[in-house]
Amino acid sequence: MAQTAHRSTSRVLDIIELLSVSIEGHTLTEIAQLLNSPKSSILPMLQTMAARGFIDLNYRTNRYTIGLGLYFAATIYRNKISVNKFINLEMQRVTDQIGESCCLGVMAGRDVLFLHRTNPPENIICDKMPGQKELGCIGAMGKALLCDYKLDELTEIFFKDGGRLPPETNLYRAHIQMEEVRLTGISYEYGEVEPNIQCVAAPIRVDNRVVAALGIILPTFRINLEKAARATKDLQISTRKIENVLSVSDENLDEVFTQNGFKNL
């Protein structure tokens, strides 16, 4: 949290952010644990927000969820901007929080095609730029995009028409890593694509189908355990937000997830 942030206000926003990505909601104890804050300080905030209709309390399960007040506010906001602009704003939020570049990509044949990227002031130069491609079975982005594929489907993608993989790349091993992504929702790379560049990525789903992937680029000279953990957490929150917006949008996904969709934002 930035030094200029007001602690109580930040906690309210933390609660909103936490509940906005949970369909089942959370109990007071769970919220306090997830925010690493005492229940005594969290409870008055929850009570006030519930009284104003911004969150709901299920008295049978004691779980808090998003309320109508926030839903109506979000609906008004959503109607003002496009899905592409929402994704851009969310990626910029991640960049501001982590201090690193955030990238968005889709599969194009056997490659990841990067569509959009947001950068911090101290931008790191690497190949994960809009319009660039990287082989889908090597990096974190590709493993996130391909995590639902079976081994025979991957074989068809990467070896049809005489296709070959780099000598150090083992498709079976990559498939095992993709299966782990399907279970955990997070994929990693540790310099396999570019030296000194790590990446953490997560799939974005619509109707349980992976349509894109969101990633955070972590240069090795700036990474530490705290930053890596924060990146993973923020990535999970952001992908859930984007999925929620996509689930109620009537925009054409084939037009959203293109390079043209992110021009002139």
Rank of each mutant, 00 (worst) to 15 (best):
M1S: 15
A2G: 13
A2L: 10
T4I: 09
R7I: 13
S10V: 08
R11N: 08
L19W: 04
L19E: 00
V21G: 00
I23P: 10
I23H: 04
E24M: 11
G25E: 01
G25D: 00
T29I: 12
I31W: 00
L34P: 03
L35V: 07
S37K: 03
S37E: 12
P38S: 11
S41F: 09
P44Q: 03
L46Q: 00
M49I: 05
A50W: 03
A51P: 00
F54D: 09
D56S: 07
D56C: 02
N58L: 09
T61V: 13
N62E: 13
I66N: 05
G67W: 05
A73L: 15
A73D: 00
A73G: 09
A74F: 05
K80T: 04
V83D: 05
V83I: 12
F86H: 12
I87Q: 14
N88H: 15
E90M: 10
V94Y: 01
T95I: 06
D96E: 14
C102E: 08
C102D: 04
L115C: 01
T118H: 05
T118G: 07
N119L: 08
N119W: 05
P121Q: 10
I124Y: 15
I125K: 12
D127Y: 14
K128C: 15
K128T: 14
M129R: 15
Q132C: 14
Q132T: 11
L135W: 04
G136E: 04
G136Q: 02
C137D: 09
I138C: 09
A140L: 07
M141N: 08
A144M: 13
A144W: 04
L146V: 02
Y149H: 15
L151A: 13
E153Y: 02
D161Y: 14
L165R: 03
N170K: 08
Y172A: 15
R173I: 11
R173E: 15
H175G: 02
R182N: 13
T184I: 07
G185L: 07
I186G: 00
I186L: 10
Y188C: 10
E194N: 08
E194K: 03
N196P: 11
I197T: 08
Q198F: 12
Q198S: 15
A202D: 00
A202K: 03
P203T: 02
V206Y: 06
D207P: 07
N208H: 12
G215L: 01
P219Y: 05
F221A: 09
N224W: 05
K227H: 06
K227M: 14
A228P: 05
A229W: 06
A231S: 12
D234Y: 14
Q236A: 10
S238R: 04
T239W: 02
E243N: 02
N244P: 05
N244M: 11
V245G: 02
V245E: 07
E251L: 10
N252Q: 05
V256C: 03
V256Y: 03
F257K: 01
N260E: 14
